[in-house]
Design a protein around this nucleic acid. Structure first.
Length: 395
DNA sequence: TCTGGGGTCCTAGGACCC
DNA sequence: TCTGGGGTCCTAGGACCC
């Protein structure tokens, strides 16, 4: 053991600035400096807003109707997820040239553990600056980087660094950095928890830090209490785990869609469940996974949302199995004239398909539906999704 | 014509089993 | 009168993230 001493702040959190908006406009000089909103649909929300649009208080997740009211002159661009995915892959590749310890949190942000890269590349701060230059040169977009000893602190630091900057939080400055922040800034503290903590008189991160653990746990529950206490001291020791590979598939896959207008028509709703089941099972087959628990989601016109699930005896990736379970769950609700805003289908408990041995059911042809699915998948591959779909989706 | 779509994780009660 | 006690699975809901 003769290596240089480990850096005190080995964790980088890299976060693209206004990622979707930046990518959507990087080849459109006419849109530079202009308020741009990525989003769409009459009932949609803002996916990303350029910094010029943020001047008008337009924010991510805001209903599009409200965003247009705040900034009527904004240019609205539809999202191009294929392009976002390509840029994201290139960016993640740049990260992996620095260290194999890259944990992607989404298309546009990742944690990097640079402990093993400092001899080769310099201090964490120097690595952060190199990365920012690389991404700017190669992708034409900017990013911000937070640098700290713990992932939760690095994450907050990158927010402070925005846009287009770096913030390093050395160990001796963790509490002075964290404690003045509102509790709502903590990663994992959303609207509800923030409101509850405020009601308890815990407004800043420092307030939480100085509340005895037992008291905190009594107020918010054992799990959340100890989690918050750790975060408030920047003591989160979560390690960086490179993203799941094929050996560890996603835990669930699902799809849902908001209707253009609310509906109470059973045929329309069942057709949508079939479309969503087709989509989800198709994605499962591409990923080579099967799952046992089928869940439907139903959102009523008043936005109240319920779920119903059913666990099958065997994992499946067969469209018909998923749809049959979904439609039965829907019918079991016994809805009469309730108007629905959204329905969704999700399959959970995913395992690699080769670990599933499909039992022979008496009277059922062994491969019937899955053979049909594979034929559909082959045709889809050749001719696109429009080519092959169940008859009831053709109308 | 307020409020998307993709996920993850946690909690809690009841069933069921030993 | 009297209530066992864990462990695991299933279901439903909810909070949170980007």
């Amino acid at each position: 053991m003769t290596s240089a001493s480990a850096p005190a702040t080995p964790i980088l959190h890299v976060d693209m600035d206004a990622f979707y908006a930046s990518v959507a406009t990087r080849d459109r000089p006419d849109l530079w400096g202009v308020p741009v909103i990525v989003g769409g649909g009459s009932r949609g929300v803002v996916l990303s807003a350029s910094y010029a649009a943020r001047q008008y208080d337009v924010r991510s997740a805001m209903p599009m109707t409200r965003a247009r009211r705040l900034c009527p002159q904004a240019v609205v661009v539809a999202p191009d997820f294929e392009l976002f995915g390509q840029v994201s892959s290139s960016v993640m590749e740049s990260f992996r040239r620095v260290t194999p310890l890259v944990e992607a949190l989404s298309l546009d942000e990742a944690f990097l553990d640079v402990r093993g890269s400092t001899r080769r590349l310099g201090s964490p701060l120097e690595i952060a600056e190199q990365l920012r230059a690389t991404i700017h040169d190669e992708q034409g977009i900017t990013c911000s980087v937070g640098v700290a000893a713990a992932v939760s602190v690095a994450k907050l630091a990158s927010r402070r660094a925005k846009p287009d900057g770096v913030v390093v939080v050395p160990p001796e400055e963790i509490t002075s950095f964290l404690h003045p922040l509102d509790v709502g800034e903590l990663w994992g503290v959303g609207e509800k928890t923030r409101a509850m903590l405020h009601r308890l008189g815990l407004v800043t991160v420092g307030d939480v830090a100085h509340t005895p653990l037992r008291t905190l746990q009594r107020a918010v529950g054992a799990g959340l209490g100890s989690h918050l206490h750790e975060l408030a001291w920047g003591a989160d020791r979560r390690a960086i785990t490179p993203r799941r590979g094929p050996d560890e598939p996603d835990r669930s896959m699902g799809a849902d869609e908001t209707f253009g207008r609310d509906t109470d028509d059973r045929e329309t709703i069942l057709r949508e469940l079939l479309r969503l089941s087709t989509k989800v099972a198709g994605r499962m087959r591409v990923a080579g996974v099967a799952g046992r628990t089928v869940t439907i989601k139903v959102r009523f016109a008043d936005f109240t949302t319920i779920t119903r699930s059913r666990t099958l005896p065997e994992a499946t990736d067969v469209t018909q199995d998923v749809y049959r379970a979904a439609s039965r769950l829907y019918d079991a609700l016994g809805l009469q004239r309730a108007r629905l805003r959204l329905v969704g289908v999700r399959v959970e408990g995913l395992v690699p398909r080769e670990t599933v041995h499909r039992q022979l059911v008496l009277g059922e042809r062994e491969h019937g539906w899955s053979d049909a699915d594979r034929a559909v998948d082959r045709a889809t591959l050749r001719f696109g999704t429009a080519a092959v779909r169940p008859a009831s989706l053709l109308s």
